[in-house]
């Protein structure tokens, strides 16, 4: 306000103002207008072009504005002025308490422990989802073993050209070690990623309905896997099939497991919020699960690449197990060992 007081014109206007509340306004106007200019620039995405003084002044100007607003509400009946202050206070509030400082910094925190910690926080839901997935596989296997017609009900048409109950060992082996499709691998990988990501997102999003649709989706997808497992087991190809699956499956199924667990976590918090209100419980769980989901998408990109490239290029079962096992070990170590001490120290 030093600048205001030294300006003789403003000084005179302040002195001659008829009302006390107008004097109050004229004394502070310059600061408000400066704040408004800064905020307008920031809203237009020109934050980088602000001068250092402006950036440093922003928090002070913002707090000054809040106190001006509080005073004006109690002492001024100038509706235009109060409207202006209310609007400016809200706009600068959003700038001061805006979104995360920068995307890069968020990413660093995410990979440097945030992701792993979010996964450790939903451990119970991961166990539930794992149980559901194993149960789904067994159900699929048992159903088809009991009556092979179930296979056609479980597996959608486009999957099942060769891989049907009663197919010869030759034909099935061909699907596991076929190298005929190498030309389109990139497309295949991208398609698989996009498709799987949508399934995972669905598994999470359905958690909203108390987690029940998430569980059903997990059971259905795993029953499909169980059914296929039976077909291959009939021809003594279990080991090869699991190898074929594990190269990307350890990553992909892990990702789907996490997505389902995230969905169950949200559903569980809505159904049983504990001491919190339903809304708070839902939003706390939602934010935790969203971190897990951001990671799931990254895992699915890896899975898509492994499925599209590595699986078709590596034709030895032993190597497939090695790659799949290595990926699984990597994820487990990263999620459940990495950053553990640091997180605990912080708490």
């Amino acid at each position: 306000m030093a600048s205001v007081a030294t300006d003789p014109d403003v000084q005179q206007a302040i002195e001659s103002a008829a009302l006390k509340s107008d004097r109050f306004r004229l004394e502070r106007e310059a600061d408000w207008i400066r704040l408004e200019e800064i905020v307008t620039k920031m809203e237009k995405g020109k934050t980088r072009r602000l001068s250092d003084e402006d950036v440093l002044a922003l928090p002070t100007l913002y707090r000054t504005l809040l106190s001006s607003l509080s005073i004006a509400r109690e002492s001024s009946l100038d509706a235009g002025l109060i409207d202006y202050l209310e609007g400016l206070a809200l706009r600068s509030y959003f700038m001061v308490y805006g979104t995360q400082t920068s995307f890069g910094r968020w990413l660093k925190g995410f990979f440097g422990g945030g992701w792993s910690q979010a996964i450790r926080e939903i451990k119970l839901d991961i166990w539930i989802a794992l149980f559901v997935m194993i149960a789904g596989t067994l159900i699929g296997y048992a159903l088809v073993a009991g009556d092979s017609d179930w296979y056609y009900a479980l597996v959608p048409g486009n999957f099942a050209e060769v891989r049907v109950p009663g197919a010869s060992e030759e034909a099935l082996r061909g699907t596991l070690f076929g190298a005929e499709k190498q030309d389109g691998l990139g497309v295949f990988a991208a398609y698989l990623f996009s498709n799987n990501a949508q399934v995972a997102i669905l598994a999470f999003a359905l958690g909203f309905a108390f987690g029940i649709p998430s569980i059903l989706l997990l059971i259905h997808n795993m029953a499909l896997l169980g059914a296929m497992l039976w077909v291959f087991a009939q021809r003594g190809l279990t080991l090869e099939f699991v190898g074929w699956l594990s190269i990307h499956g350890t990553t992909e199924l892990f990702a789907i497991l996490l997505a389902g667990a995230a969905g169950i976590h949200v559903g569980r918090s809505i159904a049983f919020p504990g001491a919190k209100s339903h809304l708070t419980a839902a939003s706390d769980a939602g934010k935790r699960a969203a971190l897990v989901m951001a990671g799931v998408v990254i895992m699915l990109i890896c899975a898509g690449l492994l499925e599209g490239f590595a699986r078709q290029l590596i034709n030895s079962t032993a190597l497939r197990y090695a790659v799949g096992g290595a990926m699984l070990t990597f994820w487990l170590v990263y999620f459940f060992v990495f950053g553990r001490n640091r997180a605990e120290n912080r708490l």
Partner: peptide, 20 residues
């Protein structure tokens, strides 16, 4: 809603649900 910072997690969560 609580008047605090709008976090990246919140934005991710609200937009994943958009899918269903």
């Amino acid at each position: 809603r609580d008047g605090g910072r709008l976090t990246a997690e919140a934005v991710i969560a609200r937009n994943i649900i958009r899918d269903i």
